[in-house]
Each structure stands twice: as C-alpha cells, then as structure tokens.
C-alpha cells in the first residue's frame, strides 16, 4: 500500500464514523448498509476487471450463493451464521474454479459469457427449487450475526460492522495489488508477452483473482442474508450483476478506490432520484423506479464517452487540469 492509500482509508474511516451522527433515520442507515455490501462486492469485482482484465456478469449469483448458504445452513442445519458464511465462501470459491478454469485458460472475454450463463442458472434454481430455496417465497427467520452477547440486530450496529468489513476487504485488496502478484497482473496489462517471458503465470493469476472476487461477493451475500433476515431470488438477477459492473466502470476500474466511489454513488443514486420525484411531477413526468435503469444507462454511456478512466481518475485529471489552468503562478499578463 502506498501513503495515499493510508490517507484514503483514514478519510473513509472518519466518514464511516461521522455519518451516523448526521443521519439517524434507520431507513437511511439501511441504505448505507446496502451501500457497504455493494462496495464489498465491487472491490472484488474491480480486482477482476481492473487488474485481471476480465468481466464477470455473474457476481449477483455469487452473492446469491453466499446469501442462500447462510440462510439454509442457519435455518435448516442450525449452523452458526459465521460458520455458514465461511461455508458459503468455500462453496463460491469452488464454483468459481468450476466456472473460471475452462474460460480463463482461453484468451478473450469468455468469462463474461460463462458467468452470464451461470448467473441465469443460479437465479432459475433459486426460483424453481421451491423445496429447498422456498422459491419466490424466499427464506425467512435467518438469525442475526453476533459477537458473543453483542447481537448485530440494529441498523446502527450492522452499519458499523458492514463498513468495517468493507475497510478490511479494501486493505486486503490493496495489499494484493501492491505485491509481487499484483505487479505481475499489472505487467500483463502492459505487455502480456513480456509478463509471460518474466515468468508470470497469466492463467493461474486470472483464476486466483476470480476466486477472490467471488469470495468477496459471497461474503457480501451472507452479510445481506443476516442483515435482512429474509431473502428471496429477486435481488440476485442478472440485472444486479450488470449494475455491479456499471458501478465499477463508473468509478474507474483500474483503481480500487474507483470501485468504492462508484459503488457509493450508484447505491445512493436511487434515493437521491426519488427525493427529486416531486420535481419530476412538476414538469409533468410521473417518476417511477423504472426510470432508474434509464438513468444508469445514461450515466454509463456518458462515463464511457467522456471519462473512460472512470470518475476517480477522470476527476483527478480534471482537477489537475483546472489547477494548472487557474493556478496563480501561471497567470501572466
């Protein structure tokens, strides 16, 4: 990790601690918990997209694997939620190997295809295997996570816990990219031939990163299950996978911080939009959630056209440009 990263983590930590003093409405705290869960998934996805150069259109399915593992193992088998979360992570890692190995041995975007198919299968199974998953009815009564006597049963407790997990996940991911392996991955971006000639095992690294990102998604799913205490197949459809990819791309996929920023902005966006719904009515539009998808699409399009490096890097370049243009030292006659 570099010094900038420590500063970033310090700022993030301060914001996480400060926000509940400004927001005490449980609904908004809930929104911030979901934001944290998206952040966690997006950090993993950013490792895959930005560093291994692969796209997954099935991360919602890994979230589902984590969520359903937690739900089923706690309610049916009586496992502790922690053990169930671990089991979900292991299951996701194994599935990632099965889905990833055949497609990542090939060059090109086969992983996107494989994960898209996998995502559809998981969603259908969640809906159709009524005896196990409860079908569209879902599974309720999932126990809360707890540390001894401290049960994470309130929004504020879960809020702190989920953001702590995000920060830990971010630190681990930053460690990874500033390691021998991360250097190898960045080298692949520079020149795959030269990286191979230097002994970088391209295919193995891509698979390992895919596994890590699947585990991040799975843990996010397990956290979701024990926070909401009820799950159904609804949130785990392919559209959610696409939304996650959008978050990473909007923030800037070559920077982990970009994923954090993209996830936060796009998770909060629906709330911001719905608070503006009054204005929409004033201009004769009946705002409904259906417009969200239109707005996401527009944002993605605009980012890809004007800030292909994402908001994080793009914003930085913009800031530098403005600074150079308007800095007093450069002003001459």
């Amino acid at each position: 990790m570099e010094r900038r990263d420590y500063i970033g983590i310090g700022v993030l930590l301060a914001m996480v601690i400060a926000v509940p003093f400004l927001v005490d409405n449980p609904y908004y705290l809930g929104v911030l918990v979901f934001t944290a869960l998206n952040c966690l998934t997006c950090i993993g996805l950013s490792l895959l997209m930005g560093y291994a150069g692969q796209i997954s259109l099935g991360h919602a399915a890994f979230i589902a694997l984590g969520a359903y593992s937690s739900a089923l193992l706690t309610t049916l088998a009586g496992w502790s939620p922690w053990a169930a979360m671990g089991a979900g992570a292991v299951i996701s890692a194994v599935v990632a190997v099965i889905v990833g190995v055949p497609s990542l041995r090939l060059k090109g975007h086969y992983l996107a295809m494989a994960t898209l198919g996998f995502s559809a299968i998981v969603h259908i199974v969640a809906i159709a295997a009524v005896d196990i998953t409860g079908g569209p009815q879902g599974i309720g009564g999932i126990p809360y996570l707890s540390f001894g006597d401290l049960v994470l049963d309130t929004d504020i407790r879960f809020y702190y816990f989920s953001w702590a997990v995000v920060i830990i996940g971010l630190i681990l991911a930053l460690n990874l990219i500033h390691s021998r392996m991360g250097r190898g991955l960045r080298a692949i971006h520079g020149s795959e031939d030269a990286a191979c000639a230097a002994g970088v095992h391209t295919a193995l690294y891509k698979i390992q990163i895919f596994i890590i990102s699947a585990v991040y998604a799975s843990i996010s799913g397990s956290l979701y299950a024990s926070y909401a205490t009820y799950i159904d197949p609804g949130p785990f459809d392919v559209m959610h996978s696409v939304l996650l990819v959008t978050m990473v791309a909007v923030g800037g996929m070559h920077r982990l911080w970009g994923a954090v920023i993209g996830a936060v902005l796009l998770s909060l966006l629906p709330e911001i939009l719905s608070s503006f719904s009054g204005y929409f009515q004033m201009i004769g539009l009946d705002y409904s959630q259906d417009y969200d998808i239109l707005i996401y699409g527009g944002i993605l399009l605009a980012i890809m056209l004007f800030l292909p490096e994402g908001l994080f890097s793009g914003g930085r370049s913009l800031f530098r440009y403005l600074y150079q243009k308007f800095s007093p030292a450069e002003e001459e006659g």
Binding site: R180, M181, R183, G184, R186, A198, I212
Partner: peptide, 24 residues
C-alpha cells in the same frame, strides 16, 4: 524500478494468501 521488479518474478514466491494478508 517496477519493471525490473517484475523481472524478479521467478526468483520470488510470495503467493496469493500472503499477498492478501500482509502489507508490503
């Protein structure tokens, strides 16, 4: 410098887990 550090790849062996769990 980083270019040459990539050249040390075959002479070093820190794997996935150690890379994740320990800061550089």
């Amino acid at each position: 410098l980083e270019n040459v550090m990539v050249g040390r790849h075959t002479r070093s062996k820190t794997g996935l887990f150690l890379s994740l769990l320990t800061p550089p």
